[in-house]
Structure formats: structure tokens, C-alpha cells
Design a binder for these strands. Structure first.
Lengths: 118, 118
DNA sequence: CGTATAGTTGGATTGTTGTCAAACAATAGA
DNA sequence: TCTATTGTTTGACAACAATCCAACTATACG
């Protein structure tokens, strides 16, 4: 199981997080992750209306901004929100964005930085 | 005194607000407004390190995204954050961004959608 | 080993954005 | 009315971003 490169918590930049969240496609991915906890890229990108390579580009943007973490298991890559990291770096930010994006109540889904074992 | 065109509260889009806040120059302008309540464009753009026309472009972006409101009095234009509007549309969002941007405690400055009379 | 699956990468295209400089508009005050 | 002040608009330009398609990599499974 490999962990893809991503910024350390203290290196997450506010403007980069906001920029990552400011794209409708990426915001939708983030909403799905918030609702599901963990998703592989195929699930996360399903019915997004964009080519899979475009979705892959968005995964990378989210990862490099520090919004998601990605772990590979077999031929699947599991993504999850870096809820705890974001909360410690920018308290309340992710929850308010998720709430604004229409998620009923924030933090319904427990932090799941580690994907469930296969 | 004229009010420049800006979106109605219910037309403010989350992704546009996030995009407006995702530029370091614009975020700095927003931080200054949060600390000062009301500023004219000259004050807001002072020492930003960009040309005044660039700053003017950023004012427009912030206004069209629904983040600030601008009112003209004489030859000055006064900008202020749309705190109440943003709070009602996206509760907690602006405060968490301002807090993340290093403002000591959010909501220290009372909402000031209307510039102080000259 | 061959094939299917899952996702990434590179190229091409199209459109957007941040920036400056110069010209412009509007207002206040002399 | 002339001039200084305040900010906007326009044009130009380079950098970036979103997208698709095709080719590629890596893993799992027959």
C-alpha cells in the first residue's frame, strides 16, 4: 500500500485550499468524499460529466492543495478528505464550506484518513 | 451617493466566493476590510504591490462575487465586506476564512455595509 | 504470458486570469 | 473653467487552467 506525495499539514496554504475548492467539479468530488468517507477514483469521478483524465487532474489538484490524501491498494486508489489536518490548520473552514455546499450537517462522517482495508 | 451593481444575496455562488478569496491579493484586501470596516479603494490597495488598475480589477472581482459592496461618495468609492449577507447565505464561511487568514478573532468589527457619512 | 482494469501522463486546444501601461471618466476644489 | 485626485476601462501579453483524446503504466486475474 503506497501513500502518494502530499503536503505536510503545516505546508497547506489557505489560498490553495480555497482555489482547489472553487471549481464546481472539485467541490462535487469533495462533497462526495465528505458523504462517503473514502472513495476510489472511479467512484468519485462517476457521472461527473468530465473525462476520466480530467477527473484525474482534479484529484491531483485536490491532493497537492492538501485537501485529500490518496493511498494506493492494488490497482485502486483510495481518496479521503484530510479532515483532521484541515481542521487543525484552518479550524471550521472545511465544515463551513461543506455546509454551504449543501451537506446537511458537517462532520457526520468520521475522519477517515486511512481507507478501510480491503 | 451611488451604489455599484452587485449580486443579490441569494445569487451569491459558493464557488465564486471561494475563487474570489483564493487570490492572495484579494484575500489581503478582504483582511484589511475586515479589520477596518470600510475603506476607500486607495486605502485598500495601498502597498499591495500591484498596479492600481490591477487592484481595481480585483475590487470588481470581489464585488461581482458578492464579497464586497461598493458605494460612491464624491470621488471616493467605499468598500465594505458583505458580512451579514455572506453570513446568512454561507454561515460561518467568512469568519473561518478570516480566522485562517490570521485575523485574531472573527467578527471583531461590526458589520458596516453602509459607509460612515462624510 | 496475455488481457482486462484503474488511473496517470502528455499533447493540443480553448478559454480564463493576473498584470501593467496608457488612456479615460467623474468629481472636487481653486 | 482648469486642474488635481480617484478610480475604471481598454489593450496587450504571458501564465495558468479545464478539457478531451490517445498513449502509457501498473496491477490483478486467467
Amino acid at each position: 500500500m503506497r501513500l502518494l506525495p502530499h503536503p505536510a499539514t503545516e505546508d497547506i496554504e489557505l489560498t490553495e485550499v480555497l482555489r482547489a475548492l472553487s471549481d464546481p467539479v472539485r467541490l462535487e468530488i469533495v462533497v462526495r468524499l465528505a458523504l462517503s468517507g473514502v472513495m476510489n477514483c472511479g467512484e468519485a469521478g462517476d457521472d461527473l460529466g468530465v473525462h476520466k483524465s480530467t477527473a484525474s487532474h482534479h484529484y491531483r489538484t485536490l491532493r497537492e492543495a492538501g485537501v485529500v490524501i490518496t493511498k494506493q491498494e492494488g490497482r485502486l486508489k483510495f481518496m479521503s478528505l484530510r479532515r483532521d489536518d484541515l481542521e487543525s490548520r484552518f479550524p471550521g473552514l472545511l465544515d463551513s464550506v461543506l455546509s454551504a455546499a449543501g451537506i446537511p450537517s458537517p462532520a457526520l462522517i468520521p475522519s477517515a484518513d486511512v481507507p478501510a482495508p480491503r
